[in-house]
């Protein structure tokens, strides 16, 4: 019994760790898609953020500067996306796809040119990373059965970005549904003309959304390379940006459900490591690949309208043109 509890806490603990980049990327996507800008480029921003954070941290020795660099890289990518999709009224999907390739190509290319380690950045340690924070009384409460253990293993002992990600969810919900900015943001994604008529700049609002998107996804990227791991390696985002996008659809563009879906996808990821090679009664061995594919399959089923309906913000993907 005791061992099961340990097992479950450990799985849940890694669920949290694996869900953090998804949560950040998903919230990031939420802001831009709510403002009417489709962001296929989350994956690329995550990757660029991870690379910039690890590089800066390796060179300066400061995780915080690394974090800033990660955000900066994501901002640059968002800027290009904004230029293409807001100013030049180009196709947002194509721009996003281009940015994903740009990140994949540039991170490896620059990584090799700068560090000459086959695309890896130097190993980070100490202050170059965000290290686990032990919450107050965690050590003392450790001996308390169940609750103390949950507090010690699950709630305490994560790095600062993890806590930030979990706080960002209610904050996003508040901003989106309780502030004037949030109201305008949602309006510009549904009916930009109304916003324009009210004398508010659609362009400005959409750029603001893109900036928030970049900050969040940049932090998510930094989490990958300087919090969860100790350095950058090739393609380390490994499709998480797309999973976050899937989660966003699954959550129907709402922050609370987004958290739950990201945790669920994180859980699937965590379980996948645990069940490798294990034989279960009745079903036998579950192939790892089946669990890997599960988030995608579930999203397809959802999109097909077999479990509820996911309707995107109405103006999403359409550049806004003022009538002349």
């Amino acid at each position: 019994m005791e061992s099961y509890l340990v097992d479950i806490t450990l799985i849940l603990d890694s669920t949290v760790r694996l869900a953090v980049p998804l949560i950040l990327a998903c919230l990031a996507g939420l802001y831009s898609e709510r403002a009417g800008i489709v962001d296929i480029g989350l994956e690329g921003k995550l990757l660029a953020g991870a690379f910039a954070a690890a590089s800066m941290s390796a060179v300066t020795g400061s995780a915080w500067l690394g974090l800033l660099a990660g955000i900066g890289a994501a901002l640059m990518f968002s800027g290009i996306h904004g230029l293409a999709s807001i100013n030049f009224k180009g196709n947002q999907t194509i721009s996003g796809v281009a940015l994903n390739f740009l990140a994949a190509g540039l991170t490896t290319f620059l990584g090799q040119s700068w560090f000459k380690r086959g695309g890896y950045t130097p190993q980070l340690s100490g202050d170059q990373r965000f290290n686990p924070i032990t919450l107050p009384f965690a050590e003392q409460l450790r001996e308390v059965p169940i609750l103390g253990q949950i507090y010690f293993e699950l709630i305490s002992g994560h790095n600062i970005i993890t806590y930030f990600a979990f706080i960002a969810v209610p904050v996003t919900a508040w901003v989106l549904f309780r502030t004037r900015f949030g109201l305008r943001l949602r309006a510009v994604g549904e009916n930009p003309k109304a916003i324009d008529t009210a004398g508010i700049s659609v362009t400005r609002l959409r750029y603001q959304a893109l900036i928030i998107t970049a900050v969040l996804v940049g932090i998510g990227g930094a989490y990958l390379s300087i919090a969860q791991s100790a350095g950058f390696n090739n393609n380390m985002s490994a499709g998480r940006g797309y999973i976050a996008l899937a989660a966003l659809i699954f959550a129907k563009w709402r922050p609370g459900p987004a958290l739950l879906v990201c945790l669920m996808f994180g859980f699937l990821d965590a379980v996948q490591f645990r069940i490798q090679g294990q034989v279960f009664p009745i079903i036998g061995e579950v192939p790892v690949q089946a669990i890997q594919a599960l988030p995608y399959i579930l999203t397809v089923i959802l999109l097909a309208g077999f479990i509820g309906r996911a309707v995107a913000p109405k103006a999403s993907g359409i550049p806004y043109t003022k009538e002349r």
Partner: peptide
């Protein structure tokens, strides 16, 4: 040796960006 093949992926991205997304710039 200073240039890896990934530079090609970068070019590919730039081509998509400039001919696809920003084609009317």
């Amino acid at each position: 040796p200073g240039i890896t093949r990934e530079m090609i992926v970068t070019i590919q991205a730039l081509v998509i960006l400039f001919t696809g997304a920003m084609g009317d710039m």
